[in-house]
């Protein structure tokens, strides 16, 4: 059964130095507040996993929490580049960042394999690309039935997955809806999981297309209103596009980023 707790306690208990940590949420429901808590807790040498690193991983990378990044698209959506990520890859600042790079289809299938308890997933992907050349975790495989050449990618089984959802009930059952991305797969693939929610309610009335994560599939639930800002929570608040635009100038400059860290995360 999931424990209802605070974000600070959940991160202190469940995220450890050197862990492989996945924060998922595809544009929608990105667990940004949890990312800030990891920065405050001073975790180091993390392997960060996320399809779209987005602003939240730009911040974790810039703060020096990560040793490695496993990802498939590292941009600021609709704006341009993630400059802390670029600085880490191009100049090793503030610490060198190893990368393991996939496509979205590959990452999604890696979570599916992890959630399914399988060692790898099979897809028609990466054919002819240089990704297959530079990424160790992309291998050819022959179909034993047809002889077709396909691609295998290994399961992702993060030590901890963190997602944000709209609601949980007091027993810790979690409900999220709208664009649901790979959150279910990422939680089920993980050894431990934290879900931050907009609100804890008495009863989860049905919502169209909702994904429900039963309390016994989740380790900890913490109520964090606006915990996905500047991304959005369908039915609660909209994406703060202006914040994404303004992040460009902050992330371009190491000094501006440090000032932002002091004020917005440690302030």
């Amino acid at each position: 059964m999931a424990t209802l707790t605070t974000l600070a306690d959940a991160v202190a208990d469940l995220v450890r130095d050197g862990d492989q940590v996945a924060l998922e949420g595809f544009t929608h429901l990105i667990p940004v507040a949890a990312g800030h808590e990891i920065i405050r807790s001073g975790r180091r040498d993390l392997t960060l996993v996320r399809m779209t690193p987005d602003i939240v991983y730009d911040q974790l990378v810039g703060a020096g929490c990560a040793r490695k990044l496993i990802f498939s698209w590292g941009g600021n959506p609709g704006v341009g580049s993630l400059h802390r990520f670029r600085d880490a890859v191009q100049h090793g600042w503030p610490v060198p960042l190893e990368i393991e790079e996939h496509s979205h289809a590959g990452m999604a299938n890696r979570y599916v394999a992890g959630a399914s308890g399988l060692p790898f997933a099979v897809l028609r992907g990466y054919t002819g690309t240089d990704l297959a050349r530079v990424t160790e975790t992309i291998k050819p495989i022959t179909c034993p039935f047809t002889g077709e050449q396909l691609t295998a990618v290994p399961a992702l089984n993060p030590d901890v997955t963190i997602v944000h959802a709209q609601r949980a009930d007091r027993a810790g059952n979690v409900q999220l809806w709208g664009i649901t991305g790979v959150q279910k797969e990422a939680v089920l693939a993980a050894k431990r999981s934290i879900v931050t929610v907009e609100e804890v309610v008495d009863e989860l009335d049905p919502r169209p297309g909702a994904v429900v994560l039963p309390t016994w599939a989740v380790t900890a639930v913490a109520e964090v209103p606006r915990g996905a800002h500047p991304s959005y929570a369908h039915g609660y608040y909209e994406r703060d596009n202006e914040y994404y635009r303004s992040w460009d100038a902050i992330s371009r400059d190491r000094g501006a980023f440090d000032a932002w860290l002091k004020e917005s995360v440690f302030g």
Binding site: T52, F71, S72, W73, G74, G75, S81, L82, F85, R86, V89, Q90, E101, H102, S103, H104, A105, L123, R124, G125, Y126, T129, L131
Partner: peptide
């Protein structure tokens, strides 16, 4: 790299 771009996303498939 001289310039690190965002990467693949869904494009290869």
């Amino acid at each position: 790299p001289e310039v690190r771009l965002p990467g693949a996303g869904g494009a290869p498939e």
